[in-house]
């Protein structure tokens, strides 16, 4: 999985490419854990992301919890499969999808 970081003022965009699963989730966890200080808006761009597994959901949930305290989190361009996963797992209720 490829993670591209774009910083604009206090906005951080993480563009993910590939699969966010058990194997790649630790990669994203390393980018989120302790690295969101000062970030007001966290944007996940899922344009090129094929799939999110439960391990990936856990990281999104962790990020959401952090952003609930300091700003907002947006998930953009998720494909139909991923939106399905968000729906089935109830994540669509806690995530802001665009």
């Amino acid at each position: 999985m490829q993670i591209t970081k774009t910083v604009e003022n206090d906005n951080l965009t993480l563009s993910l490419e590939g699969r966010l699963d058990t194997l790649t989730a630790p990669q994203l966890e390393a980018e989120v854990n302790g690295k969101l200080d000062g970030v007001k808006t966290l944007i996940f761009d899922f344009q090129n992301l094929a799939y999110v597994s439960s391990a990936g959901l856990r990281i999104l949930f962790m990020a959401q919890k952090i952003m609930n305290k300091q700003g907002k989190m947006i998930v953009r361009n998720a494909n139909a499969d991923i939106k399905d996963i968000f729906t089935v797992t109830g994540f669509s209720n806690i995530l802001t999808l665009e």
Binding site: S54, L57, V88, T89, G90, F91, N93, I94
Partner: peptide, 11 residues
């Protein structure tokens, strides 16, 4: 669907 368990205590 409800939430996976272990996420939100008041789900």
């Amino acid at each position: 669907p409800g939430f996976p368990i272990g996420i939100m205590e008041n789900a």
